[in-house]
Amino acid sequence: MSNMIKTSGHPMVKAEGVHKSFGLVPVLKGIDLEVQPQEVFCLVGPSGSGKSTFLRCINHLEKINAGRLSVDGELVGYRERGDRLYELKDREVAAKRRDIGMVFQRFNLFPHMTALGNVMEAPIQVKGESKSVARERALKLLDRVGLADKAHSYPTQLSGGQQQRVAIARALAMQPKLMLFDEPTSALDPELVGEVLDVMRGLAEDGMTMIVVTHEMGFAREVGDALVFMDDGVVVEAGHPREVLTNPQHERTKAFLSKVL
């Protein structure tokens, strides 16, 4: 894989037998899946099934114990030379994360910065962009998520839905090729879920590759291109969202869907 030629044909994310355990507790027990470019890929399943952990492995917030995980043709967290794997340095890991945006369940906005400051931070610090360039794009992104008038508000002055939209703008500011969403609407009041999903729908229409861990089956059915149902650290069922959600094949999928739909 070291001399892999980048072609437009390869998957954006490829997992082969990915294992992960916390101490002695196995969380992922061999995940195999592929996410194609421009795809909206939904991960669903009961809590504790390992979907969030898998998502965090993709940008190396968690280290996998076994298997292969690659993003855009490059291994996550390692370099392969000959038949040996070399751990990447912190700096190299950081450089790879630039291209992967992540949106968290609890927003994790930087509370000491305004909405604008949050969006400008990474382009300035990581890409070394000038303040004026970063600022211009940040304002455009805030406008895109419908928060142009909140640019100078601090996160505590914003509602949950507004905070999550700022978080999406913050991730987009790095112009990522892949966006990871970790239950982006789970911490929101029901009436605020829609505004966040609308922004995500817009992103999907623009062709962004997205991996979405979600309990919003309506969103998955409507926007998703692929859906994977995970339970107990394994992929139980995969397919097109409409098929899996309306005609689940496995008992566990049926049992789960009967509770959430």
């Binding site: 940008n59 917030l61 912190d90 700096r91 950081a94 450089a95 994360r97 630039r98 992967i100 945006g101 992540m102 968290f104 609890r106 994790n108 906005l109 930087f110 931070e121 990474a122 610090q125 990581v126 978080a167 913050r170 991730a171 790095m174």
Partner: peptide, 13 residues
């Protein structure tokens, strides 16, 4: 979560 968000954006330690 602050450290995670920052790392996810590509900031170094």
């Amino acid at each position: 979560g602050q450290t995670e968000a920052s790392h996810a954006l590509g900031l170094t330690g």
